[in-house]
């Protein structure tokens, strides 16, 4: 079971949370063509590595937030509040690799 870092409540067991999928998916304008709508609704990066994803602390504070997690180790790197800018995942991966090499 994951230990999920809620930015308001701190680390809590995964049972209290609902995963809400990829973060920062932009909703297309209402007059966008069906391909753009399908992309936003169904198409995902599904990255093997660092991802930004949404969680909801359903059985806690009830709030949504975003987190960065590595999908091979399942380790959380950081979490941040909705509305905060998306982290640069490529740079974050480089920083983590440099830290691991030390």
């Amino acid at each position: 079971m994951l230990l999920v870092p809620c930015p308001w409540c701190g680390p809590r067991p995964e049972l209290e949370f609902v995963a809400a999928g990829e973060a920062h998916v932009a909703r297309p304008s209402p007059d966008a063509d069906p391909t753009a709508l399908a992309e936003a609704l169904y198409f995902r990066a599904n990255t093997k590595g660092l991802i930004a994803e949404r969680w909801r602390h359903l059985h806690g504070c009830g709030r949504f937030f975003n987190a960065v997690r590595h999908t091979v180790t399942d380790k959380f790197v950081m979490s941040y509040r909705p509305g905060d800018p998306a982290p640069d995942l490529a740079r974050l991966a480089e920083t983590l690799a440099a830290e691991a090499a030390l």
Binding site: R69, T71, V72
Partner: peptide, 10 residues
């Protein structure tokens, strides 16, 4: 419930 390539689960 989450995306993972870890071949292990909760």
């Amino acid at each position: 419930q989450y995306v993972s390539y870890s071949q292990t689960g909760g």
